[in-house]
């Protein structure tokens, strides 16, 4: 019953919007605006053929490569910088500066250095989406509870154990919040990097459709990006629920 109800909530509004769209485009003559049926046809025709392997899979691979890289670099550096106060004070202004650089401007630069390669795109994604993870990890490590730290010290936990069983879990809520922000940045940078220096990928395909006036196909590309973003956020929620089960339980107890 409960599952059916939440499923209903999930599809109700999209269904209504699609219905309105369908009615509004019944007498449609503009070639710029697709009909629901036309878009669905274009979606399946365009993306479940050669383009699946040529554009969709490379894009998703770059996206995941970039996100994985951002998590590894962000959490790794964040643990290091957060653990040492002098290092943190030394690096903070520099990090703020790098963070302030709009990542898309790196596309031409890295295009020159790394060429029209996957490495270039993954580097752009990492550079843009690492900041929320890095800064949140630093803050999470810094804010580790003092009594928990004293406990770890007085029981003489080894350094790896302190990292694995105290610092990392204590910072996990902050780290996860950082990753959540990074996901949408990563998706944006994936598209941007593919739109300029690329010969494959969703961003490349959408630009190509637009230049050839393949308007329904262009729309369907936007739909694919939306669906990828949605899938990403759903997967993230599942992971977060597992990783932060203790945190959510604790908060529920504290609220009661």
């Amino acid at each position: 019953m409960k599952i059916m109800k939440s499923a209903l909530f999930l599809v109700a509004l999209p269904a209504i919007l699609i219905a309105i769209w369908w009615i509004a485009t019944l007498n449609n003559t503009s070639y710029l605006v697709p009909t629901p049926g036309g878009l669905i046809t274009a979606f399946f025709d365009t993306w479940f053929g050669d383009r699946f392997w040529d554009d969709m899979v490379p894009s998703i691979a770059r996206l995941f490569g970039g996100i994985a890289g951002a998590i590894i670099v962000g959490v790794g550096l964040g643990l290091l910088i957060g653990s040492f106060r002098t290092l943190r004070q030394l690096l903070e202004p520099l990090l703020e500066f790098f963070r302030a650089i709009p990542p898309p401007v790196l596309v031409p630069l890295l295009g020159l250095i790394l060429g029209i390669s996957d490495q270039m795109k993954i580097t752009v994604i990492i550079f843009g989406s690492v900041w929320p993870i890095l800064l949140n990890t630093i803050e999470g490590v810094r804010a580790t509870d003092e009594v928990q730290r004293d406990t770890a010290r007085s029981y003489r936990l080894t350094r790896p154990h302190r990292l694995r069983y105290l610092i990392l879990p204590a910072a996990a809520p902050q780290i996860m919040a950082g990753i959540r922000q990074s996901l949408s940045i990563a998706l944006i940078l994936m598209v941007i990097s593919e739109m300029t220096y690329s010969s494959s990928g969703l961003g490349f395909a959408i630009i190509q459709f637009q230049r050839n006036f393949a308007i329904p196909q262009m729309w369907s590309g936007i739909l694919v990006l939306g669906l990828i973003g949605l899938a990403l956020s759903l997967v993230f929620q599942l992971v977060e629920r597992r990783v932060l089960a203790w945190y959510n339980g604790l908060r529920e107890v504290q609220r009661a």
Binding site: V147, Q148, T151, S154, R156, P169, W246
Partner: peptide
């Protein structure tokens, strides 16, 4: 430094135990 033969019980039990374990 913290001696091996000593154990400490802190006042703030809620913060001394690790809630993720």
């Amino acid at each position: 430094g913290p001696p091996r033969t000593m154990a400490v019980v802190f006042q703030e039990y809620g913060r001394s135990l690790f809630p993720w374990m």
